[in-house]
Design a protein around this nucleic acid. Structure first.
Lengths: 171, 171
DNA sequence: AGGTTTGTTCAGTTTGAACTGAACAAACTG
DNA sequence: CAGTTTGTTCAGTTCAAACTGAACAAACCT
């Protein structure tokens, strides 16, 4: 009993999923939906289309776009003869996501390590804090492993399909 | 110029840190502070002490405790001759945390895999969704590695230090 | 029995992030 | 030049989660 849903439904469902997943990873839901849309559609999407297709305000698109750009997950492009901005996924967004996660995890570990340093030498709490630090350390180390796995799997970057689109140079 | 802060300041700072870290991992801040307090103090802490020392309502303690118990991160204990509930860290809370994270990550991967399955055979989006799925897959695999690392480092469970405290048997 | 202690539940408040509309500046068009 | 398009900014709103106070039930005490 396969009731083949049409492609638009699949697409919307996927976009909602990425919205929820991103939310659980600390990004606003709209940013996740934009990310999902760029994954699904593949081609560069115009700013106005993001707002209309996702049924959100341009202001929301603007701020979510900024977040995604800051994190290095998407790239802004221009199209000659078109005044709008276009957006596509960055070259290796997943490696970048893992890298960000790894840095934050490592920063947490370092903060705990600092606390341990500041403890009096004989403190019996040190061992327990150290276990907590080791937890973050293992997590960080594991993410580095995942990074290597991902980079090994996708070493060559794919060229932009649309020759008319050009990378936008920031500052 | 080391201006040795006193132990209580170190303790409070650590508890605040765990609150923030836990918050970034999707737990309420108070739950993180409880967790931090149990790490630092080592001994089982009474319910009332959690509320007073963290300066929050008993209701907040109750709901955060429930969350932490559900996730298997802390254990409820009783003390003979004392009507209060006491709490301590579960035996291996860090492994449990990683396990939870791994399951959620794997669930995300599976959902994306389902979406790919439902796509028409010739869909050119499939490759891109598959990269996204692989990302979650690598992350999941890496967490399993971290789990093994942690379990190898702390294989033997430490006995409860206080012989008067007893495991509380739920249902 | 009545009174206390203890933890939970629930309705309501608080809080902070997400989101919007409107004003705005910059870049373009005619 | 005035008028349009485009993206950003900012003040204000909305919304969901966190948190609280108070009522409550259960277990204990006297």
């Amino acid at each position: 009993m396969s009731n083949d849903p049409d492609i638009d439904t699949i697409r919307s469902d996927f976009i909602e999923k990425t919205g929820l997943i991103s939310q659980s990873e600390g990004l606003p839901r709209i940013a996740g939906r934009i990310f999902g849309m760029l994954i699904f559609d593949g081609q560069a999407v115009a700013f106005a289309d993001l707002a209309t297709k996702l049924e959100v305000s341009r202001a929301s698109v603007s701020s979510s776009i900024r977040l995604l750009e800051e994190r290095g997950l998407i790239k802004r492009m221009t199209k000659s003869g078109d005044r709008q901005d276009y957006f596509r996924l960055a070259t290796d967004p997943y490696a970048t996501m893992l890298q960000g996660l790894q840095k934050r995890t490592q920063a947490n570990r370092d903060e705990i390590a600092e606390t341990i340093q500041s403890l009096p030498a004989n403190s019996e709490a040190a061992d327990r804090l150290n276990e907590y630090a080791k937890f973050h350390e293992s997590k960080s180390a594991a993410i580095i492993v995942a990074l290597e796995t991902i980079r090994a799997a996708a070493p060559t970057s794919s060229e932009p399909q649309n020759a008319v689109l050009k990378e936008h140079q920031n500052d």
